[in-house]
């Protein structure tokens, strides 16, 4: 971003998300948080410390601890949104969204449509995503499910700057937003620190700013191949690009920042320059975001492509536990490098 405001502070993604929530709660009394273990005195501040300290600042009525009731949480958010509030709900792990699917898919996403546009559901549902040696039910990346649901927007911040700016946009958005955060990117501290985390810190403006939905970020400029990644795979792509530069291969790395809406044009423009596309995604392969992005982008830029689009994804298996298997499962920079070399063979 070229027009970053002056005063900034180095923050982790968890801190940046907390700042976004704090500022929005100060700005708008309709904004409140609800979820499990988010405000209990002496508790965790949510599973990954994002809401730490907020109940002390805003009171337990606005940082509302719920029963373990994911369908209830999602439904409460839908209803509260319909009554004029701006709820920020969360689940401790994105896997638990499946407990709330009726509320998210049948209620939140469809309420506006079923009413013929007479109501809207301005809610945010935050969800920690990604494999972190927690195996099959605490390590999924369910983002792809929700791009298939007309009526919800899907955001995936990968930097602290975006985390704050996108969450503010989500809170101010009049539609339901699924907000996915990667567990290895939070930078949570103390007992909640994650082993193997990347925890990128970044300069975050202290004043109010937003990052618009549907506007991708070019994380690294290049001329030979475009690599599209989201959340953690942005960093896998950047690491691969660094290594490939030494081989004389110039990679452009793009982060969509939101999957719905998806900024087709920025990626298509990049393809017109590089003529090659690799998509890296931690979601399982079949029916996943990578496949959808590939379809959309070949429709938009087929004439510029010099090679078939290559997907690098998790395999079609549940998330395994054993660290050696998990390492195999998660797309890493070696997988990305191999894919880049493969698409460039068509030159």
């Amino acid at each position: 971003m070229t027009d970053q405001p002056q005063a900034t502070k180095k923050m982790s993604i968890a801190e940046a998300l907390r700042e976004a929530i704090r500022e929005e709660m100060q700005r708008d009394e309709r904004v409140f948080c609800l979820g499990e273990d988010i405000g209990i005195p002496g508790g965790f501040g949510g599973a990954f410390t994002v809401t730490l300290g907020l109940s002390e600042e805003f009171g337990h009525e606005r940082v509302l601890d719920t029963p373990i009731s994911e369908a209830g949480i999602a439904g409460a958010a839908v209803g509260a949104a319909l009554s004029g509030m701006r709820p920020i709900a969360d689940v401790q792990y994105a896997d638990f969204l499946f407990c709330a699917m009726d509320q998210l898919v049948n209620q939140a996403a469809k309420m506006r449509y079923m009413s013929g546009g007479k109501v809207s559901v301005p809610m945010v549902m935050r969800a920690p995503s990604g494999a972190t040696t927690r195996a099959a039910q605490h390590g999924q990346s369910p983002e792809s499910f929700f791009i298939h649901v007309p009526g919800v927007k899907v955001a995936c911040p990968s930097t602290a700057y975006d985390a704050k700016g996108l969450l503010k946009t989500a809170i101010r958005c009049d539609d339901p937003v699924l907000f996915f955060e990667h567990k290895l990117l939070y930078g949570s501290k103390g007992m909640r620190a994650e082993k193997g985390a990347l925890s990128p810190e970044g300069e975050v403006p202290l004043e109010d700013y937003t990052v618009p939905f549907g506007k991708a970020a070019i994380r690294r400029e290049g001329t030979d191949v475009t690599i599209l990644g989201k959340l953690m795979t942005v960093y896998r792509a950047l690491a691969a690009a660094e290594d490939l530069a030494e081989e004389g291969i110039s990679c452009e790395v793009i982060d969509p920042r939101t999957l719905v809406p998806f900024d087709v044009e920025t990626v298509a423009q990049s393809i017109r320059k590089t003529e090659h596309l690799v998509i890296v995604d931690e979601c399982p392969r079949t029916g996943g975001w990578a496949g959808e992005a590939a379809a959309v982008l070949q429709e938009a830029a087929f004439g510029s492509l010099d090679a078939p689009i290559k997907r690098v994804t998790a395999p079609d298996t549940p998330v395994p536990f054993a660290p050696v298997m998990e390492k195999y499962y998660i797309p890493d920079e070696d997988d990305v490098k191999a894919a880049v070399r493969e698409v460039l063979r068509w030159r």
């Binding site: 309709r30 606005r62 439904g75 839908v78 209803g79 009554s83 509320q103």
Partner: peptide, 17 residues
């Protein structure tokens, strides 16, 4: 049953406001 959590949520909004 899908309307039940939504009704509670709306009531939560009434109470908060």
């Amino acid at each position: 049953g899908g309307n039940i959590p939504v009704a509670s949520g709306m009531a939560l909004g009434f109470k908060m406001q």
